[in-house]
């Protein structure tokens, strides 16, 4: 009974339980296919952040923090920045910053285009964790005092 008191009604919770995994998978699909189809790291990351925000709106903040708490979100944000910069710095081994040092691969396949999928994944980590943190800071943390 206690679990039902936070968040929205039972209808919203059931629909959320069915759809939130699909939203997360769609975000991951957009990130991984960023070099083949429209999309990329930024929109995919926003969609992944939206799936966690979906959980937070439907089930309340405790359930969402169980999936992704603030410390872990900051860790993922920093991890994304470090992956992005280190892939760029490894390019110095072959010549210059942001060198595309991996092989181009076969065009139109998932593992192609050298380092571009790695940059996409790094940006996805950064954007997903960063926008989730902004949402938490603007909506949850600023209300704690009023309650």
């Amino acid at each position: 009974m206690k679990a039902n008191q936070t968040g929205m009604t039972l209808i919203v919770k059931t629909i959320t339980r069915l759809t939130v995994g699909l939203i997360l998978l769609y975000g991951i699909y957009i990130v991984l296919h960023g070099h083949l189809s429209p999309g990329g790291g930024f929109p995919g990351g926003v969609i992944i952040a939206l799936s966690f925000i979906h959980i937070m709106l439907a089930f309340g903040k405790d359930m969402a923090f169980k999936k992704l708490n603030q410390a872990r979100a900051s860790f993922f944000e920093n991890l994304g920045a470090i992956i992005f910069l280190s892939v760029a710095i490894i390019g110095f081994a072959g010549g210059y910053f942001f060198l595309n040092f991996l092989s181009k691969g076969e065009p139109f396949s998932l593992f192609s285009a050298g380092t571009i999928p790695l940059y996409n994944i790094a940006i996805c980590f950064k954007v997903a964790a960063g926008l989730f943190l902004i949402f938490v800071a603007l909506v949850v943390l600023s209300r704690k005092e009023e309650e």
């Binding site: 942001f98 065009p107 192609s112």
Partner: peptide
């Protein structure tokens, strides 16, 4: 030069 089918991604990430 990049092997990326999506030209926008090849510009913004390469």
């Amino acid at each position: 030069r990049t092997g990326s089918a999506n030209l926008v991604t090849s510009v913004i990430l390469d």
